[in-house]
């Protein structure tokens, strides 16, 4: 591998092997390609959205006389609200499951259990939609009625309860179930990589299993948990068919969880309106897609700001 050039007198440097150059070049190219694809998607969204902003609102059938911003606001609200609810349910549950599989279940069982949870990821979104609308919604509807009757004074539980149970909470439960395997699978792998020495040291100091987990596993896995949650959030924000099938969306902006009046989400709205859209209406829908894109950007920036990803625990620091 070494060529004659290596013999010339220079400061000591790592050898630049051709294999290395090809490999790092390939890696760089792949990374740049991703940026290019993203730029292309962004360019597509922006270019297609321009007519939506320049055409007078009263000439666009889908806006029904409103401005673009009054059209998109309930959708933005619904998207954030449903995704937040879904993560609120899914993240603690996912950490619990991941811990159960990595540190509580008998070792022989653990892999099988992990496989079972992975099965949830195998269910296509349309099936979750049908299940959520036809099985889950009727099952939780009596509870919704009961909650609105007894706790209606809490704004979240305000009535009247939906007659079919197809509310934003039901949609969020379905979303939570859908992101659960994603978050679980990643956090599980991260927890399993906790250095055994750390764990054994904690146990040797007399800590209980929970104390050991709190002191070694959770701090080690924190960046992984955040990463996994971001993946889950991305899925929850952008889920289309399942939400469209489950949610009874009427465009209301409300925090009430149990009523028929719910905000739609951007992705679901695109799926529902796109087939009948024509001309500028299509551009309006794509412009809402651009808004969702921007939301993801902002949410990610905030998450990045809160947690510095390069943690001291990373093996490749």
């Amino acid at each position: 591998m070494s060529s004659s050039a290596a013999s010339t007198a220079r400061p000591v440097r790592a050898k630049q092997r051709p294999g290395d150059r090809v490999f790092s070049g390939g890696a760089l190219a792949a990374g740049s390609l991703i940026l290019a694809v993203l730029a292309a998607v962004a360019a597509f969204l922006v270019l297609q959205s321009i007519p939506a902003f320049t055409t007078p609102a009263d000439e666009v059938a889908i806006l029904a006389g409103e401005t673009f911003w009054t059209y998109v606001w309930p959708l933005v609200f619904g998207t954030l609200w449903s995704a937040a609810l879904a993560l609120l349910m899914a993240v603690p549950l996912a950490i619990g499951i991941a811990l159960f599989i990595s540190h509580y279940a008998p070792r022989r069982l653990a892999q099988g259990l992990g496989y079972i949870i992975d099965l949830l990821a195998a269910v296509p979104s349309i099936v979750f939609g049908l299940w959520g609308g036809n099985v889950l919604a009727p099952a939780v509807q009596p509870f919704y009625t009961w909650a609105t009757e007894n706790f209606g004074w809490i704004p979240f539980f305000a009535g009247p309860a939906s007659g079919t149970g197809r509310t934003i909470l039901t949609a969020s439960i379905v979303l939570a179930v859908m992101v659960l395997p994603i978050i679980t699978a990643l956090t599980r792998e991260v927890f399993l990589q906790t250095p055994v020495l750390h764990e054994e040291a904690a146990l040797a100091l007399g800590s209980t299993r929970w104390e050991m987990i709190r002191m070694t596993v959770l701090p080690f896995g924190r960046p992984g948990i955040i990463s996994a949650s971001m993946l889950g959030l991305g899925r929850a924000l952008g889920e289309t068919i399942a939400v469209a099938t489950v949610l009874s969306s009427t465009g209301a902006v409300t925090f009430a969880l149990f009523t028929s009046d719910n905000p739609s989400t951007i992705a679901a709205n695109i799926a529902l309106s796109f087939p009948e859209a024509y001309g500028v209406n299509v551009d309006v829908l794509i412009a809402t897609g651009l808004i969702l894109f921007a939301i993801t950007l902002v949410v990610n920036s905030i998450a990045r700001y809160i947690v510095s990803r390069r943690s001291a625990f990373s093996g490749a620091n």
Partner: peptide
Amino acid sequence: EWPYEGGEAAPQTSGVVDAVRNG
């Protein structure tokens, strides 16, 4: 597009029929 707020919404003919049948 449905012009009024309120009521229950379901996607596609199948969704409406299912919602009516299940409620």
